[in-house]
């Protein structure tokens, strides 16, 4: 068939089925937006994990004057401290880096962080414990280190910063799976909508198709206009969803979030750019597939 003839049939079909086409475009746009958002969110989580897992440490807090655990008998002594440090150093390569923060250094840091805040006047220099900041090669080795250190005299408590982050990541992951579930549900709705749209279109044009069959048009050429219509609608939908992602990156992430949350590394344009082809692929793919299946059922060859 000539391209101009097919193009005429397709544009005619889209116009005659305008409301359904519009519904299809919107459904594709919404479901792909959600799908894109969940992809973006998962990229974001990965990015933050990589960034923070690299930075996090295990904090070993040493006994202060008011500590009450059984490993503490008043403030940590220099001997105890040296013992702990030696023990830590013996745990290489699991322990990669040991940094000692004295009580007064911790206080200085605290002063910096809470400069101008009323809380500062309530905290005395001795209130903050001295600590070892330990970097370990793999966050999973935390237990190994902790079990050897926690019972040593002079150690008050051990804190895995990853645990704090994990709570945060659990929330993010929950959001991500929620977005994914909603996206999948929307994609399923889109598939059903495509099937229904094609069914209505096939019914509305049963006269054309019966004539086409009668004059000996091939199955492919009978189905092609329907498939192209679905493809055109889903391409428009995918473009809207892509535009939505770009807008979200530009206005929400770069415009609002990034300037205020400087300690979070946000998804880059490259990563957004990598998601967009998937939107087109998934959007056009599922609609074409759904229309093929429907046509097989409603336009017998």
């Amino acid at each position: 068939m000539r391209i101009s003839f097919v193009a005429k049939e397709v544009s005619g079909g889209l116009r005659r089925n305008f409301t359904m086409t519009l519904a299809l475009i919107i459904a594709v746009a919404v479901s792909l937006s959600l799908f894109g958002t969940s992809l973006l969110l998962s990229t974001q989580v990965d990015r933050m994990k990589g960034y923070w897992y690299d930075k996090i440490e295990v904090s070993i807090f040493l006994c202060g004057s008011s500590s009450v655990t059984y490993t503490c008998t008043g403030s940590v002594t220099d001997d105890q401290r040296t013992n702990i440090e030696m023990k830590l150093n013996s745990l290489t390569p699991t322990v990669q880096h040991v940094f000692y923060e004295s009580s007064s250094a911790a206080y200085d840091k605290f002063k910096q962080q809470f400069a101008g805040s009323a809380i500062l006047s309530n905290v005395s220099p001795n209130a903050l414990p001295a600590s070892f900041r330990v970097k370990i090669d793999n966050p999973d080795h935390f237990q190994e280190v902790a079990s050897q250190i926690s019972s040593m005299q002079g150690v008050e408590s051990i804190q895995d910063q990853r645990k704090l982050l994990n709570r945060f990541f659990t929330i993010l992951k929950g959001l991500q799976s929620f977005a994914l579930v909603v996206a999948l549900a929307m994609l399923a709705v889109t598939i059903l909508l495509v099937m229904n749209t094609i069914r209505v279109a096939a019914f509305a044009r049963r006269r054309e198709t019966s004539i086409m069959r009668a004059v000996g048009a091939s199955n492919m050429s009978i189905r092609l206009p329907f498939i192209l219509e679905a493809a055109v609608a889903s391409t428009i939908g995918a473009s809207l969803a892509s535009g939505g992602l770009v807008a979200a990156k530009y206005w929400v992430i770069d415009g609002k979030l990034a300037p205020n949350l400087t300690f979070i590394p946000f998804v880059t344009w490259t990563e957004v750019g990598a998601i967009i082809p998937w939107l087109y692929l998934v959007g056009v793919g599922i609609t074409v597939l759904a229309s093929l299946i429907t046509l097989r059922r409603y336009l017998k060859g």
């Binding site: 068939m1 000539r2 004539i211 086409m212 004059v215 000996g216 050429s221």
Partner: peptide
Amino acid sequence: AFGMEVIGKSR
């Protein structure tokens, strides 16, 4: 012309 269009006859 429809009978010719759908079987790919030229304009």
